[in-house]
Design a binder for these strands. Structure first.
Lengths: 218, 218
DNA sequence: TTAGAAGTTGAGGGAAGCCTCAATTTCTTG
DNA sequence: CAAGAAATTGAGGCTTCCCTCAACTTCTAA
């Protein structure tokens, strides 16, 4: 802690102002158009030149570092709320609903959670931490006998990928459609209804390989 | 029928050869990299100049028209096979498995079915026809009491979007992972396990709006 | 065999993004 | 109120991909 690079001199007043405007614009633009939105659009919306943008945030990832961890912290809150629910199944479903609602309200967050772009160490750590508690939510629901026993933490990325696309396609026109899709999914995750699975969960190395892949998509 | 634009003169021999090479290359490239792959890559792989490519296929969509309908015809075969299965539920699940297996083996087809790009009338018609029979598969499964009664044809796009992303992300590293995801889904589509849904299916107009949207993604 | 139609070629112009840097402006501090 | 440090600016170079077209090559058929 206190590892912050200490600024020998504080930022000049106009620089602080521009930095704030850039951050605000970036939140908006990434939220609307996703993490691959053109940086020039951010500069334009901040009413600042592209040079100034690069002065404050030398890479796209610098924006991510400044924006995403704060957003991802919501995950922890959602997971904590889920643990606070006395009903383990309701906790589990509430967690997923909260998670996807988050993705639904911010296209950039959706990209981040579906790992559509390479993310920095810092952002990955935030993400990881957000899902730390989620492990407990899943475990508790399994132990209570409501969540199917063969569901594993490593299946969560499948859900996130799946829902991220549903959200992305339907948000503009049918903002609730993803909830219907999630309902189908959840009905398939109940222990009572579970049929044996023919395919094992992904191995951690497989997940890592996908995450580290620099080329998104294929 | 016999509406084919009749070529006043047949194509010259070298032109036929180049056209074939281009089509073969396009199938490969779209299959590997998706429908938005650079056309120059296709020309390169066909060992033909970019000018020749544009001579034979003046737009990207011209490639789609030449490639996709044939591929989409497989949908009909899959649906027909599903109807041939005496067990309506097995027919239904078999149809979905076949559909997604198709998406899994061709990134371009995946893009087309998830409507990641605007498609021409002709391709849309093929797509539509492919899903014509699918309606019967769904109806039969519902009538038999195995598929939940509140599942509707218009929910199918949700599944396709969801699975398309799972397939896209996991194919390279865990080529079977999508089957696991589908199993969860299918267990949620059985009538016995169905809980009431809180959200109605999308309206046709909503689906159309999404399909006609020119800007893919957001 | 050869004229002319058919087809091919690839340099190059255009658009969208990325990013840099020399010149200029603005702020701060003595 | 300077002087100099800090910050801003935007034209422009770079890349990737799109698409065109005038010059060239190849094929066909008389």
């Amino acid at each position: 802690m206190a590892l912050q690079a200490r600024p020998a001199r504080p930022l000049r007043a106009d620089a602080v102002r521009n930095r704030d405007r850039l951050l605000a614009a970036a939140k908006q633009v990434f939220g609307e158009r996703g993490l691959d939105a053109p940086l020039e659009e951010i500069a334009r919306r901040a009413e600042v030149s592209i040079g100034t943008l690069y002065n404050h945030f030398p890479t796209r990832e610098a924006f991510f570092d400044a924006i995403l961890p704060e957003r991802l912290a919501a995950l922890e809150r959602i997971a904590a709320a889920a643990m606070a629910d006395p009903d383990p199944w309701r906790g589990f479903t509430g967690f997923l609903e909260g998670l996807f609602a988050l993705q639904a309200e911010d296209q950039g967050l959706n990209d981040a959670m579906a790992r559509r772009l390479p993310l920095s160490e810092g952002v990955l750590a935030s993400c990881h931490q957000g899902f730390e508690l989620a492990g407990q939510v899943v475990e508790r629901a399994k132990e209570s006998g409501t969540l199917r026993a063969d569901f594993e933490m490593r299946d969560l990325p499948l859900l996130v990928w799946a829902m991220s696309q549903v959200i992305r396609e339907s948000m503009g026109v049918a903002p609730q459609a993803w909830r219907r899709c999630l309902s189908f999914f959840l009905d398939g995750l109940r222990a009572e209804t579970a049929r044996p699975l023919s395919v094992p969960a992904m191995a951690d190395e497989q997940l890592d390989a996908i995450r580290l892949r620099t080329t998104p998509g294929s």
